[in-house]
């Protein structure tokens, strides 16, 4: 198994085209470390290559099928590159209305929801990050206690029902306005801002709001970006609240439409439409096109997420 030894694996160059170093750098192998035996290097490279392929190939396959023509799909087998690529499936689902509407719903929810979440999270985090506020310790326990005790499905549902929010998009945003976890991360960051800067702004007569808006927020862009992305990804992916609170299927966001047409196999003729009289593309390609459009937004924001969490914005804050 894996050991504390270190090695310079030479993985399959096709897979690691991006990751492979362009020029040889001086080895960062610590001087005390023995050379790794060849068999171990090979073993590690193979294991890692298999893991990476297991993560990447399914995506490649999904995208390839979504661009495939009838002939490619009928041929079956391993499709990683469509032989005669076509946009027919995408044209069909984008003409069909249902997927387009679901995408609009999901985009709208994600934008408004993330904005509302950021407002509630940053203001409370700022309040709780200020030193010497009487009662702020007790208030912090209100936040942390929420991590330990969850209200449960049934009472949460009854609350939304009592508030008259069933079948209302607010029911998908309001119950998740603050994540205690994200709030703690932002608060930790605010606490570490240079106090002298804040004090001098106060002496110049800046109000609490001005300090927050003109000093704290601009200095915290990195952590705010990563928290906003986490919120946005969660709303884009949210499924449970939608199934719980939206009975009206015409209001469904993309994740529920995806389930209906891909997992439950509802007739795609309802979701897809070809403007002309051409026959509908094969069901498989339509389904994979829906999977692809639900995945692409995540793939787009992923590099940004990646950039921040490898820098340790999050792990640093968690430690605090």
């Amino acid at each position: 198994m894996a050991t504390a030894e270190t090695t310079n694996p030479r993985p399959d160059p096709a897979v690691f085209a991006d990751a492979a170093p362009r020029r040889r750098r001086p080895s960062s192998r610590p001087p005390w470390m023995e050379e790794t035996p060849v068999w171990l290097t090979v073993l590690k490279s193979v294991v890692l290559a298999v893991i990476v392929l297991m993560m990447l190939l399914p995506f490649l396959h999904v995208f390839a099928v979504s661009f495939s023509s009838y002939k490619d799909v009928l041929g079956g087998g391993l499709i990683l590159f469509p032989r005669s690529p076509t946009l027919a499936a995408y044209e069909a689902i984008f003409n069909g209305g249902i997927v387009v509407r679901a995408l609009q719903v999901s985009i709208g929810l994600t934008l408004f929801g993330t904005l509302a979440q950021m407002i509630f999270t940053t203001t409370m985090a700022w309040g709780l990050s200020r030193p010497g506020v009487p009662g702020s310790r007790a208030l912090l326990f209100v936040v942390l206690g929420a991590l330990l005790i969850a209200p449960g499905i049934i009472p949460s549902y009854l609350l939304i029902k009592e508030l008259g929010l069933l079948n209302n998009y607010a029911a998908l945003i309001v119950p998740g306005l603050i994540s205690s976890f994200n709030l703690v991360i932002v608060r930790q960051f605010f606490m570490n801002l240079p106090q002298e800067l804040i004090d001098s702004a106060r002496i110049d007569g800046a109000s609490e709001w001005r300090v927050f808006w003109n000093i704290a927020l601009p200095l915290s862009k990195a952590v705010l970006a990563v928290v906003a992305l986490f919120y946005a990804v969660a709303i884009w992916n949210s499924f449970f609240n939608a199934i719980l609170y939206l009975q009206d299927s015409t209001k469904w966001p993309i994740q529920l439409v995806l389930r209906q047409y891909v997992l439950q196999g509802s007739d795609l003729a309802n979701a897809a439409d070809t403007a002309s009289n051409q026959p509908l593309p094969p069901a498989k390609t339509l389904q994979m096109a829906i999977v692809a459009v639900a995945t692409v937004p995540i793939l787009i924001v992923y590099p940004f997420l990646q950039k921040y969490f490898t820098r340790g914005v999050l792990t640093g804050a968690i430690k605090g």
């Binding site: 409370m124 700022w126 506020v133 209100v142 929420a146 005790i149 209200p151 949460s156 609490e208 927050f212």
Partner: peptide, 27 residues
């Protein structure tokens, strides 16, 4: 002491009470 700090905490606090702790009582 800066009272305005409580105004920052208030909206979030109310949210926690209504959407997290109130449903717990619903049990």
């Amino acid at each position: 002491m800066n009272r305005a700090v409580y105004l920052f905490i208030l909206p979030g606090f109310l949210w926690y009470v209504v959407f997290h702790y109130l449903p717990i009582l619903g049990n």
